[in-house]
Simulated assay, not measured.
Amino acid sequence: MILLVTPAARASVHGNDVTAHRWRSILTELGCDVRVANGYEPGDYTALIALHARKSADAIRTFHAEHPGAPIVLALTGTDLYPDLVTSGVDPAILTLASKIVVLQSQALAQLSDEQRAHTTVIVQSMPDIPYETPRHDVFEVSVLAHLRGVKDPLRTAEASRLLPADSRVVVSHAGAPLEADLARLAREESTRNPRYRWLGDQPRTEALRLLARSKLLVLTSHDEGGANVVSEAIAAGVPVLSSDIPGSRGLLGDDYPGYFPVGDTEALAEALHAAETDRNGYYERLRTACERRHDLVAPRKERAAWSDVLTELSLPVPRPVAS
């Protein structure tokens, strides 16, 4: 039995909880028994997989004490890695307890020491193809799938939409839970006074993915990301992305991706939105083609194969063969 610890609340529809339950599914397919918990729960375990070094630190320490010698896989999240491990409050001792470190995109390796990189693997979050949804024809709909947290800079797209020309057809549909009261108040006010913006509140995962699939663009405005699920989802849906220029997105979309704008730069985002809407100099098509080229990166078979390799390396029970 593998214990998989995630600090996310079970009701969450994004982030760590989505990752944890997808990993449980993958590990089950590979022949493992997996128990998902929000902290350490007593049991007879062969290994621990822990999401988030800081928030899962107590679970990691307890597991190590109760199961000395059993392997620990530590998945580092964005709030572990950025701006750096020390500033984020990650206990160095927790890293030394990990038999294996997992990061979610290639540029995260730059945040680690040579010694840490030696036992780190990159496992990109996968997503099956998301069925096509017919876009709205009356507007150029842009989606934001981000909970209302400061690190997400969740109202930046709304602010950028106010700078668009009067004849722009851009509307912003924003799905996300009100995790910070001040931001929720601002989102409600923005929905009232900005005709281009609608905050939809928290949405069931199926509805959020349908919104994404019908959108012309996904906009990610975060200050930091470890490797956002929503970018994998956009690639799987064939929806181009505009993203703040952060390592977490560069590690997924590539350094040559044409859809970055400086973090917090409202004017630059507005310019990118207008260029995409009008397909100025083929900009929208370049975004679409660049995302299409990344499609294989998020293929579920690749994530399964990566976890199969981790299990084998840690001498855990031999997993079932991975389909090619």
Rank of each mutant, 00 (worst) to 15 (best):
I2N: 02
I2V: 13
A8C: 08
A9Y: 10
R10G: 11
V13R: 07
V18W: 06
T19Y: 05
T19P: 01
H21A: 13
W23R: 09
I26S: 08
L27K: 02
E29K: 08
C32H: 11
V36A: 00
A37R: 00
G43A: 01
A47V: 06
L48H: 02
S56E: 00
R61D: 03
A70F: 00
A75T: 03
A75N: 00
T77D: 01
G78I: 06
Y82S: 02
L85Y: 01
V86T: 13
T87L: 06
V90T: 05
V90L: 02
L95T: 03
K100R: 13
L104D: 01
A110Q: 11
L112P: 06
L112Y: 03
L112R: 04
S113D: 11
D114M: 08
T121R: 00
V122W: 05
V122Q: 02
V122H: 04
V122N: 02
V124E: 06
P128A: 13
D129M: 14
E133D: 08
R136L: 07
H137E: 09
V144S: 06
V151H: 00
T157N: 06
T157S: 10
A160R: 05
L164Y: 11
D167Y: 10
V171G: 05
A175D: 07
A181C: 05
D182I: 05
L183E: 03
E190M: 12
R193H: 14
N194T: 10
R196Y: 09
R198L: 08
D202R: 14
S215R: 01
V219H: 07
V219L: 15
T221E: 01
D224G: 06
E225W: 00
A228R: 03
N229E: 13
A237E: 04
D245Q: 03
I246H: 04
G264N: 10
H274P: 12
A275M: 10
D279M: 08
R280P: 11
G282A: 15
Y283L: 13
L287H: 02
L287V: 14
T289P: 10
T289S: 15
C291R: 01
E292W: 10
R293S: 15
R293Q: 15
V298K: 04
E303P: 07
A305S: 14
A306T: 15
A306H: 12
D309H: 05
L316W: 03
A323Q: 13
